[in-house]
Nucleic acid binder design. Structure first.
Lengths: 347, 347
DNA sequence: ACCAAATAGGATACCGGTAACACGGAGAAA
DNA sequence: TTTCTCCGTGTTACCGGTATCCTATTTGGT
């Protein structure tokens, strides 16, 4: 038998016109049933809904969106999904925007602004209604692109002076400052600082600044910052390695890691090396991950509002899409210092 | 001044027609420059690309997709993003499909099939090219919907007899069986099993089956299965509570938790209660999370291919989209038992 | 019984691209 | 020269909806 040009791809292919034909109306009426049901006579409406059910009709949002010039999509770019922190942020924004009927488009940039830029380009081709970014570091081209495009953009995980549009985060500088001060308060003096690479990551840079400022204010000299490069993922072994290097280099009495993962690796290494934490060496981390609660001694760390930043970003986006002018484009959600055993220095 | 109907929303609003006008061609030629550059005279091409740059033109994939009947989107539904395991799976599929120019659409179902069903409905309205699901438990309506729609569907995290389309995972039944056997081999006999609720989660159900089978094969009687309900997130405290209940109920000598989080909570509780792990009580977990490597004693667990499942799912989808008939629609990626201190029974 | 207002649904155009075909002109073959 | 091709571009139609305007009935007030 001869196939018609338009093979009915069953369900997936059913169009409004087919539904209309079956119900004996035009597609405009079908469209009304979906969009403004009150404007359609109940009997007709019934006929149409029956026809839709019979054919298993599924509306095509692409078509509708083309008309409306919108996609119903919120895009989010995170450095990686393999870090529970960013996944928490995504869960937060997902919760909020999906409530509003918007979908979440996700991509991960591997901590690279150039990758991020190319992702932004391809994301904009999908005409998202809004965009969530991680951090404030973007290529100039990316910033221009976003500014020109005009959709709401929220940057997360850091607060700063010159957001592309809106920002929600906490101050990594203050957080690192506060933790350093906490270590000093606990009696530590020769405090080393272990950071990730700061070039493409203003969070790391700001934390370094906070640390240095706190040391300076206390009149302490800061040992050289130890930078660790973790390729694929952030691994505890890297923290362990840092400990071995540091204790040969200088007579430090505490180490402040900018990730709990590193800090925990360090604690385990100290156990092996016979270094008493916290008596001989205080150890602090960052992010308040599960591991820090479980390791012994438990880890002093900085708690950050990972999920809350996502939720807040979602709310800001929704508010803007609803046409509201926001009172503030920048939200600082703060952080808190969680003091646990790893810095409880006996005196 | 009077606004034209079509306000140039700068960048975001630039259309192919505007580029065409500036370059002195029709939009068809602009389209060709993007899609089949070789068919366009180099001079013309240059004029067009210049015009695109000048106007900051960004193609609209919605429009192109409407024509092609495709969205360039792969959708993925996970129970939650707050569990690093599922985030790992997403990272896997994201890596693979984004390489192919496809985008990732994510939603989380909160472990509920009814929510999943409604998400599937709204996802299909976006005409994704393929769909990734977690688990094999779906409402009948959801299965019918997907079968009728005809796009590639991959179910992950479990293997079973009747996938909607394709499946990639490991056998939770065999994994639980193997771990139970491992405990028995280590000398434990009164082995309790702590599971999450199994109604909407065939992974939990299969693990229970595997445990029971292994006990039976060894001629051991299984204590009643202890089911824990963790509302929002999976928390260590729940494991701790389970331990307190269990040790009053029966004279068990080992507990097999179906999550490392619970198991770790249990280990910490044992430390408080003065129960010696592994001498008095063996403890095993599931999933091989970071916490299990860090806690003391380190946790015996089942390692599952979280990220690999995502990658494999991505590859299967790409193969199908490329028109290949797959040799096998079901992939078992296996698991491995990681034996650590928490079940190293002294004899 | 007559006209205005309200109601229900159709006709048309358009969203921003792209496939398919048409067409004019240049160079090759005859 | 004339005819045949190929090349580069324009024309037309369509993807699947929706806003807008328009027409044909009701409905109701007087």
């Amino acid at each position: 038998m001869t196939l018609k040009k338009k093979t009915s791809r069953s369900g997936s292919g059913t169009t409004m016109a087919e539904v209309a034909a079956l119900a004996g109306v035009t597609k405009m009426t079908v469209s009304r049933v979906l969009r403004h049901p009150e404007k359609v006579n109940p009997d007709t409406r019934k006929r149409v809904t029956t026809a839709m059910a019979e054919l298993g009709y599924i509306a095509n949002r692409l078509a509708g969106g083309l008309n409306a010039g919108t996609s119903g999509l919120v895009a989010a770019i995170v450095p990686t999904l393999r870090h529970s922190l960013f996944a928490d942020t995504l869960e937060g924004i997902s919760d909020v925007v999906s409530e509003a009927g918007l979908g979440l488009f996700v991509s991960s940039s591997a901590y690279r602004s150039d990758v991020e830029e190319s992702q932004i380009r391809s994301i904009l081709e999908r005409r998202p209604d809004a965009l969530m970014l991680t951090g404030l570091t973007h290529t100039k081209a990316a910033r221009d692109l976003l500014r020109g495009f005009g959709i709401p953009v929220v940057e997360t995980w850091e607060t700063g002076d010159d957001p592309v549009d809106m920002a929600v985060g906490y101050s990594n500088r203050e957080a690192a400052h506060a933790m350093t001060a906490e270590l000093i308060r606990s009696g530590y003096r020769r405090i080393a600082f272990v950071n990730g690479p700061a070039e493409n990551n203003e969070r790391a840079r700001h934390r370094a600044e906070g640390y240095l400022a706190a040391m300076k204010e206390a009149g302490l000299s800061a040992p050289p910052i130890h930078v660790v490069h973790d390729e694929a993922a952030i691994r505890p072994e890297t923290g362990a390695k840092a400990i071995r290097v540091l204790r040969q280099q200088s007579d430090i009495d505490a180490v402040f890691f900018t990730s709990d993962i590193f800090a925990v690796g360090a604690i385990l290494a100290c156990r092996e090396l016979g270094i008493d934490v916290p008596a001989q060496l205080g150890i602090a981390g960052f992010h308040d991950l599960d591991v820090g609660r479980v390791v012994s001694p438990t880890l002093t760390t900085v708690q950050v509002p990972a999920m809350e930043m996502g939720r807040k970003a979602g709310h800001m986006i929704l508010a803007r899409l609803a046409g509201k002018r926001l009172a503030t484009h920048r939200q600082d959600l703060g952080f808190s210092i969680i003091s646990r055993e790893s810095t409880r220095r006996p005196h």
